[in-house]
């Protein structure tokens, strides 16, 4: 059985889009379900960049138009620069301002009550 090049590109593109979609949803579940800020940050920071990359690559394979590919490439490069930088700045600011990670199982159980007060504790003077 022979596959022509178009089918291969189509399959590759679908594969990339599928992985991107999976990562998107897993990041979304992660940001909702994880117990404290740093684990949520981990879920989002890791999946977001790769999901964006995968979906953009998948779109690039769909369209042979040079200008469209260049624009997608620009978005990809910017995402690769911006997302990790923003995550880094955010995590750094959170840690330096005294938001502590939840380290214990019992704390996770109490985290609902505990987290309610954190917003006021962190309020700048």
């Amino acid at each position: 059985m022979t596959l022509d090049i178009n089918t291969i590109v189509e399959i590759l593109s679908g594969f990339c889009l599928l992985i991107g979609s999976f990562l998107c949803i897993s990041g979304g579940v992660g940001i909702l379900r994880f117990p404290d800020f740093y684990t949520r940050m981990h879920a989002v920071g890791v999946t977001d960049t790769l999901a964006a990359g995968m979906i953009l690559v998948g779109l690039m394979l769909q369209n042979p138009d040079a200008l469209v590919v260049i624009k997608l490439l620009m978005i990809l490069v910017m995402t690769l620069f911006i997302n990790p930088t923003a995550s880094h700045a955010l995590a750094k600011a959170a840690f330096h301002n005294g938001l502590m990670p939840v380290l214990d199982d019992t704390e996770i159980l109490n985290s609902k009550e505990r987290n309610k007060t954190t917003d006021n504790d962190l309020e700048p003077k």
Partner: peptide, 15 residues
């Protein structure tokens, strides 16, 4: 304190 942000910003502004 914000070396990384500064460098990335410097790279982005021309774009």
């Amino acid at each position: 304190q914000h070396l990384i942000l500064r460098i990335v910003t410097k790279m982005l502004i021309p774009f």
